[in-house]
Structures are given as structure tokens and as C-alpha cells.
Design a protein around this nucleic acid. Sequence first.
DNA 1: CGATTAGTTCTATGTCTATAGTACAATGGC
DNA 2: GCCATTGTACTATAGACATAGAACTAATCG
Lengths: 118, 118
Amino acid sequence: MKNLQHPPKEDISLFGILYALSEPVRFSIVEQLADGEELTCGAFKLPASKGKSTMTHHFKVLRDSGLIYTRVEGREHYTSLRREDINDRFPQFLDALLKAYGTTAKNHHSRAFSSKSF
Amino acid sequence: MKNLQHPPKEDISLFGILYALSEPVRFSIVEQLADGEELTCGAFKLPASKGKSTMTHHFKVLRDSGLIYTRVEGREHYTSLRREDINDRFPQFLDALLKAYGTTAKNHHSRAFSSKSF
DNA sequence: CGATTAGTTCTATGTCTATAGTACAATGGC
DNA sequence: GCCATTGTACTATAGACATAGAACTAATCG
């Protein structure tokens, strides 16, 4: 039984977000969702070295922090960024963060991670 | 022998910063430095419940992440925010973060933490 | 000098976390 | 119906982290 819960907007904590994003793989997931696209887990560019259950864990941390929304359709899970909710609670923060990272680390990890379905 | 090292600006990592700030006590330290003031450890408003060595640990995490600079004068340690270095590497990020938090959590922890020298 | 103050260093401990292996469930294609 | 696909759930484990007690250092004060 899938148990995908999302915290209500009011419960989103800045500390939870900071923690969730302090892990490079998780940050990369959020970054790849930044353009508003919805992606299935397999569509992410992620380190091939990580196992399935590890990635499930990372998605759960992101979900619990309120950063992402997961929608089940068929056997696939579509993940998107809860940008509006985050912006509502912490105006400008997410944009500034993604922009700040973009200016220093552009292309770094998109090359480091190979595309592998898990 | 005091061993207070600061990473050069180029080595400051966004992930390190995010991690360091994901802990409420550490976030509070940075917030109290936001106005540019230099504070001794005892001058911070922090939870009275924390021991001396715990706080030393938190200051070290912040120092290692590149967020704060510690200057020794006499028997006191003056701590300040490395705002310019952070801004250079991650433009707008720190300001957006502090502002984002300020809009939602103003006064929350400044009351929760009592002033206690440690 | 002796005592106090400010803060570090060392060591220990319980808890949390990233990782992964295996089993499981639900869907879709043949 | 059978099998591959797409993940989750459960369980385990090694390492990291927050917390703190105790000893220690360096500086200041009386």
C-alpha cells in the first residue's frame, strides 16, 4: 500500500527544507524540477550508483519536508515541485537558492550523474 | 591550543551552508549576526539548556561551513557573519533566507531562548 | 598567587541518517 | 494468465551527529 503523504502548507518548516536540500542528490532532484516540469522517478538524472530504495528514501525526505508533490498514475510516480506553497511561506527563498547555485555550479552535477532508471 | 580554522571563500559549499543552517540553534546564531554585529559567545541569546561544549560544537560547524568568522581577543571569541564571502559565492541567498524566515517566524525563538552565558 | 571567566578539547553515548538488500504491490504489455 | 516495470515497505548496518561531562588552557581580576 502506497503511503504518500504531503504536509499541509502551513506545516512546512524552513529547517526541514534546509536539511532536505543539504544533500546533493536531493538538491539535484529539486533543481531538475525547477522549471515546473513533472518527472517520474526514472526520468531524473541521478547517480547510477544509488539503489532503488535509497532513492525512495530521498524522495520521501523531500516529500516530508514539503518540497515536492508526488502523484501516482498507473505504475508511475509523477513528482513536481511545490513551488507555490514554498513561495507562499518563504517568499523569494527558493528562487534565490536555485539562482545562487546556478551561478556557481552550472553543469557540474548534470554531467556527474548518468541517467539510469531505478 | 585553540584551533580555529576558516575555509577560504572558494571552498564554501552551498550544501555545507544548508546543512549548518538546518539546525535551529545554529540558524539562530546566524540570524543574530545578521545586522553585522560582532558577538562573543556569551552574548548570544541561546537555549539555556545547552551545555558549553554543545555550543562549541555548533560554532565549529558554522565556522567549518564558512558562515561565521571567529576572532580571538583576550579570553573572548568574537564571532561575525562572513556576509561578503557568502554573498560573493551565493548572491542574494543569505539575504533571501533571512528575510524569508523573518516574515514567518519573527520573535518566535528570541523569546524561546533565554540569555545565558556558557 | 589563587580564583574566576571564557571557551576549547577529549571522550562517550544515544539517536538519526544514507545506503542497500529483499520482499512486496500495482500496473501494463504480451 | 504470466512476466516485466515502477516503484514502495521493511529490515539491517555503518557512519555521522547533537548532546554533554570532565579536564584543560589562556586570560583577567583581586
